[in-house]
Amino acid sequence: MVATSTSTTNGLIECQGVTKTFGGVIANNDIALNVPEGRITGLIGPNGSGKTTLFNSIVGYHPLDSGSVKFKGKEISKLRVPQIARMGMLRTFQQTRIYSKMNCVENMLVSVPHRRETYRMMFSEYAPEVTERAEELLEFVGLYQKRLLISGDLSFGQQKLLEFAMALMNEPEVLLLDEPTAGINPTLINGLIDRLRRANEQMGITLFVIEHNMRVIMGLAEHIYCLANGKLLAEGTPDKIRNDKRVIDAYLGGHA
């Protein structure tokens, strides 16, 4: 059942048999999944089920034990992080990472795409359109008023929004978000979901989202994969996942 659904669509990211162990602990075991272009795909699972490890495997932080990862049909499992990033696949971090001693606009400017960067561009100043775009995106995430503040002084939630805006600045084709709503004030979550959707619809960015908040992911994603104990447990539409007994057991019944 799992096999048929993955082989029919042609995904932007395709994982086959991805396995990763850390000194005997199997973090990912033979995972196959598929992130279709232009959609929002979710990845859920209990703590320690290997979600972040899978993200790290896809974007190139560590070598795979076995398996293949394809991006736009190209094998990328041997490539490293910057190369993959320049192909148009970015990730954000669970523990937000920004350039903390620079102000927000500078954070945005330095995040421009580096795919076609020439040596001459390295030594030029930023064009006014680029600054304009940076401010637009800061406005998009609601940080325009804070644009000249040192980013390290922002609150955790604001830093998270900044990181998201930086990712958008990079004009990625696909964005892997690691728990975008964790640590964000609950009243702001709806706004964030709205922005994620707009990024997907208006900017055409494919999203692949790890999320713990069930309400968020069920409302956001069109297709959800569920991991447990390093294995792919279930996949399907939000409705199907919500009613899958194995998923409910995995969340409620611990790791038995």
Partner: peptide
């Protein structure tokens, strides 16, 4: 040099090199 893109890029490397790599900056260059 510090007034060009170059300046911001090396500041980014200082603040978080792993992030800079993750954003596709040609860090070695």
């Amino acid at each position: 040099l510090y007034s060009t893109r170059f300046g911001l890029a090396i500041n980014a490397i200082r603040d978080d090199e792993e992030k800079a790599e993750g954003m596709g900056i040609h860090t070695l260059r």
